[in-house]
C-alpha cells in the first residue's frame, strides 16, 4: 500500500481496519491509566506514587493521541469514551483487571509486561503507510522508555530478597496469561496485514516479547508459569478483550469512570473541560 496522509483515500474495509488498530491502542492506554490512578496516595512512598501517577498521565496522553486520530475519522469524544458501550471497547484484559490489594508487585509486573509489548507494537508501526499512525510514534516511544526503565528498575529491586521475589513471581503467575491477550488479533486482522500497517505481525511481536521478558524475569530468579516444553497458548484466558468479550471487572470499571460524566450531563462536562458550548 502506498503511503497516504488522507484517510479519505482508503477503501471502507481498510478504513475499518485502521479504526480497529487505533481502538486497540487507545483503549489499552486509556484503561491502563485509569487502573494506575487507583494507586494514587497508596503507593509505598511519595516518590513511587508520583512516578506511577506520571506514567498514568503519559498513558492518558497517548490514549488522547489515538482517540484524536479517531476523531479525525469522524468520531466524537462522547462516542469514543463517555457514551460508548463497554462491550465495544477493544483493550486487552490485562489492563482492566483489578489490582491485588496493596500488592505493589502487581502494578510493577503489569507495567513491565505491558510496556515491553507496547514498545514492540510501536516499533512495528514506525513506518506505517498512514501518517495518523506513524507520525506520533516517536513522541510516544520517548515517554515509553521511561516506563520500561521504571518497571525494570523496580523489578530488579523487588527481586533483591526472597519475599519480594515471591510477590513478583505470584504476580507474573497471575498476569502472564492476561498479558498474552495483548497479541490476540481482532476482527480486521487480515486487512491490517494486507495493508502492511505493521512491519511485524502480532505473532512475531509475541515471539519477540517472549524472547525479552522470559530471560529478563529468569535473570531475576523469577519463573514464568510454563515450562520449556509447554505450549504458552495454554495460558491464554477464555476472555481476551480484543473481541469485546471482557471480564466482569470491565463493566464495573467503565461504570465508575463514566459516572461523573453522566452525573454532570454533557453540557457541564464540556464546560469543565473549557470547551465551548455547541
Amino acid at each position: 500500500m502506498a503511503a497516504t496522509d488522507d484517510v479519505a483515500d482508503l477503501a471502507p474495509d481498510e478504513r475499518a481496519a485502521l479504526e480497529a488498530l487505533l481502538f486497540r491502542m487507545a483503549d489499552d492506554e486509556f484503561v491502563l491509566a485509569e487502573r494506575y490512578t487507583e494507586w494514587q496516595v497508596r503507593a509505598p512512598t511519595l516518590e513511587s506514587d508520583l512516578a506511577l501517577a506520571n506514567i498514568a498521565q503519559d498513558e492518558l496522553g497517548h490514549a488522547r493521541l489515538w482517540y484524536d486520530a479517531l476523531q479525525g475519522l469522524g468520531y466524537s469524544e462522547p462516542e469514543l469514551v463517555w457514551e460508548r458501550n463497554p462491550a465495544d471497547f477493544r483493550h486487552s484484559i490485562l489492563v482492566e483487571l483489578p489490582f491485588t490489594g496493596g500488592d505493589w508487585a502487581d502494578p510493577i509486573v503489569r507495567s513491565y509486561l505491558y510496556d515491553e509489548a507496547e514498545h514492540l507494537r510501536l516499533q512495528a508501526l514506525e513506518d506505517a503507510p498512514v501518517r495518523a499512525l506513524a507520525d506520533p510514534i516517536g513522541k510516544v516511544q520517548r515517554e515509553e522508555e521511561y516506563h520500561r526503565e521504571h518497571a525494570q528498575s523496580w523489578l530488579e529491586r523487588l527481586c533483591d530478597d526472597a519475599e519480594g521475589r515471591e510477590a513478583v513471581e505470584a504476580a507474573v503467575g497471575r498476569l502472564f496469561g492476561p498479558a498474552l491477550t495483548l497479541f490476540v488479533p481482532g476482527e480486521h486482522e487480515a486487512t491490517v496485514e494486507r495493508m502492511g500497517l505493521r512491519s511485524e505481525s502480532l505473532a512475531d511481536q509475541r515471539e519477540q516479547w517472549l524472547d525479552v521478558v522470559v530471560p529478563f524475569l529468569g535473570s531475576l530468579g523469577v519463573e514464568v508459569p510454563f515450562g520449556p516444553e509447554e505450549d504458552v497458548d495454554d495460558l491464554l484466558p477464555e476472555r481476551v478483550g480484543r473481541d469485546g468479550n471482557h471480564t466482569d471487572d470491565w463493566p464495573a470499571l467503565h461504570e465508575e469512570l463514566t459516572r461523573t460524566y453522566r452525573e454532570l450531563g454533557r453540557s457541564d462536562a464540556r464546560r469543565l473541560r473549557g470547551e465551548r458550548r455547541e
Partner: peptide
C-alpha cells in the same frame, strides 16, 4: 530533594518530581 534506595532510582524519581 528526593527519597530513593539508590542513585539510579533517585535519577528516575527526580525526573518526575523536579524535571517535569
Amino acid at each position: 530533594d528526593v527519597h530513593a534506595p539508590d542513585r539510579e532510582m533517585a535519577l528516575l524519581f527526580a525526573q518526575i518530581q523536579h524535571g517535569r
